[in-house]
Amino acid sequence: MTNGFVVRSLEEVRFWSRIMKEHSLFLKLGFRSEDTQLIQEANGFYAIFENIENKSHAYTFDVDPAVIKRFNEEVHQAVSHIWVFKRKVLGLILTCKLPGANNFPLLVDHVSREANYFRNRLAELNTGRLEPLPDAIIDENVFFLRIMADHAKFISHLLDPSERKLIEQANNFSQEFDQLLFQARDLESMRPQSQTLPLLDQFLDQNRVSVKSLRDFKKTARELIEACRIKSIIHPLLADHVFREAEHFLFIIDMFEHSLTGKPVPKMHPMD
């Protein structure tokens, strides 16, 4: 294992442990006051991932790779547990066991998909079995395009119904990313013949344009929410949360672009 393994591992854990911590808070806020057991479990996961996040920032990039491998295993176990929790909550909602709660089923499924993604990434890093670049480009984009499409839907449904213009914009982004996701899945099903440099390069360029637009929309929405200038039930932290995930996706696109064509990319993760 090399320093690259340590850097990649710590960057992933620093980003995703904060995301998992915030998922715990958002789920808790959506439970009913009588759901004391679920609230307690969510609080427990918040504490677990806050501790993981703090530990990840305490490590430096020159730490022994064996230490990080053990840390990844510890994090993997925690992520597996929160994934089980999220799927349990989804089951309760879909069987009408939590009437009146405020967590959308799609949101709970969404956060469980992110947990599964994080868990798989940790396993890949520890085994050294990362996907070949052409496969990674398609698979990562399929995953993140769906995440972005979900975000647009959540924003639309959490804005006050009177915010007609913003809802229209969010719905347009939802349709745009649904179309991009369909295109990505078409490219996926055409593998390996579709994995030519020109097609993959165009694929990344097209997605980047749309993700930047959505990122900017999220940034504006976050600023409006923080300034209390629009009507919504969107928590300010949720607005920042979805903005950071768009930034993360853009960083991944840029890294793929560099690996594919040698074009320059940012020197560090935008969240660092």
Rank of each mutant, 00 (worst) to 15 (best):
I233E: 10
K231E: 12
E176G: 00
W83V: 11
I39P: 00
L159G: 10
V7Y: 08
F85V: 07
A184G: 12
V75T: 13
A149V: 00
F143T: 01
L180R: 00
F143L: 09
E12I: 12
F61T: 12
S189I: 00
I225Q: 05
I253P: 02
Q195E: 14
D64W: 07
P264S: 11
V67Q: 14
R8G: 13
Q193T: 03
A246R: 01
L238E: 04
N120F: 03
E41S: 13
Q37P: 00
E245I: 03
D109S: 13
L130Q: 12
M271Q: 14
P132I: 06
N54F: 11
R146D: 12
Q206A: 09
I253E: 01
D109C: 06
E73N: 12
F26S: 04
F118I: 05
V242A: 01
F249P: 01
V13P: 07
I234N: 09
M1V: 05
V6K: 09
F61G: 02
S213I: 00
A66G: 03
L106Y: 10
L238D: 03
H258E: 14
G100H: 08
K212E: 13
E176F: 01
S33L: 14
L260T: 06
S174V: 02
R222Y: 12
T220Y: 10
V89T: 13
R32L: 15
E163D: 03
W16R: 02
V63Y: 07
M268S: 15
E50C: 05
G44K: 06
F217T: 02
A170I: 04
D109M: 05
N54Q: 15
N172I: 01
G44Q: 07
E41P: 02
F182A: 12
D254I: 03
H151I: 06
L94G: 12
F251I: 03
